[in-house]
């Protein structure tokens, strides 16, 4: 019989967040919907395209307020991306909004050919990304989207870590005449500290440090930050934490600097360990010749355990406690 869904944050992790003065913000999905509505209200050229997904995308109010700026295609993700490509080609600022699991799989060929190859600057919005859908299972998880989309030329791939990055990435994407994929989750997120000037392709220093580094993306960054604080308090370790919203193109300088300054790097992402941020960093560092101790943390290559998003994060060592242990083990403590 189900207990209430466990929180992503243990009592200890919440205490660490409190000590840091972090405040719990909103789900990025809500920030997305609100920001898109602001953009669309100010610019009749903005169009959202949905596939029976406006509810999941929190776009109900948008649809009511701006019915001429939302195109519904029904449950048809390939058609969604094709229609979005057509709209963009005639000059519409087009956001194609669908669960990340379907958008980055079902419509992959439309993304590759009709968006990226044809340079139609559609903004692909993967909602309820990663393991946000929890116990709905593998059909509803997007643990392949970074890998699949990184392998496509002419596509920016990004996963904002907090409400600040979410808002900025949507506004930047709208202004950019290029194809962009953004993914959002539906759990409330802490607002992270650190300079929040957002530019695609730039990492954000969330915590300074020189002993070791966490290089993380999307909604996993907070757990890396909490782990770093926990390690500072319990092991006297001074860990750098980089938020890397843009998985592609990678901020090569920030990652190489971390490798030069620190004895160990742990990468963290809500994605399969193959093909995502971790392997992007590994490839960069191996080819640049300076590889510190290195671990990729993500969802392993197995049938994903059943459970809520929090269960899954905890099961695979992606929360504060698990990440702190991984770093200490890697450093040989």
């Amino acid at each position: 019989m189900s207990a209430p869904a466990p929180s992503m944050y243990s009592a200890d992790a919440q205490a660490v967040a409190e000590k840091l003065g972090l405040s719990l913000g909103r789900p990025n999905l809500e920030v997305f919907a609100e920001t898109l509505q602001e953009l669309a209200a100010g610019d009749p050229n903005v169009v959202a395209v949905t596939s029976d997904s406006r509810g999941s995308g929190k776009l109900g109010p948008y649809g009511k307020a701006l019915p001429r700026q939302i195109v519904e295609v029904g449950i048809a993700e390939q058609n969604l991306v094709g229609i979005a490509a057509g709209l963009a080609s005639v000059g519409k600022t087009t956001f194609a909004v669908s669960p990340a699991c379907f958008l980055a799989a079902r419509s992959l060929e439309q993304i590759k050919n009709d968006i990226a190859y044809s340079d139609n600057p559609v903004k692909l919005i993967g909602i309820s990304a990663g393991v946000s859908y929890g116990a709905l299972g593998t059909t509803h998880h997007s643990l392949h989207d970074f890998a699949a989309l990184r392998a496509i030329n002419n596509l920016i791939v990004a996963a904002p870590a907090d409400n600040i990055e979410a808002r900025a990435s949507i506004r930047s994407a709208a202004a950019l005449p290029a194809p962009v994929y953004l993914r959002f989750g539906k759990a409330p997120l802490y607002d992270l500290p650190g300079d929040a000037d957002f530019v695609f392709g730039k990492a954000r220093l969330v915590r300074a440090g020189r002993d070791a580094a966490f290089v993380a993306t999307g909604e996993a960054v907070i757990h890396a930050l909490l782990a770093a604080e926990h390690l500072a308090a319990t092991a006297g370790l001074d860990c750098r934490v980089l938020s890397v919203p843009t998985v592609k193109p990678l901020d090569t300088k920030a990652v190489q600097d971390a490798a030069a300054d620190c004895a160990a790097i742990v990468t963290v992402e809500e994605h399969m360990v193959h093909g995502g941020l971790g392997e992007a960093c590994a490839a960069l560092l191996a080819q640049s010749g300076r590889v510190p101790k290195f671990r990729i943390v993500g969802i392993p290559d197995e049938y994903t355990v059943t459970g809520s998003q929090a269960d899954i994060f905890r099961h695979y060592g992606m929360t504060m406690e698990g990440l702190a242990t991984t770093m200490r083990t890697l450093l040989g403590d």
């Binding site: 189900s2 929890g134 116990a135 299972g137 593998t138 509803h140 059943t306 459970g307 809520s308």
Partner: peptide, 18 residues
């Protein structure tokens, strides 16, 4: 079926051959 959607259950929230 009481374990439907529970942590580590094989009763996932969609049909699975498990």
């Amino acid at each position: 079926l009481d374990t439907l959607c529970d942590y580590q259950s094989h009763f996932v929230g969609h049909p699975t051959r498990k």
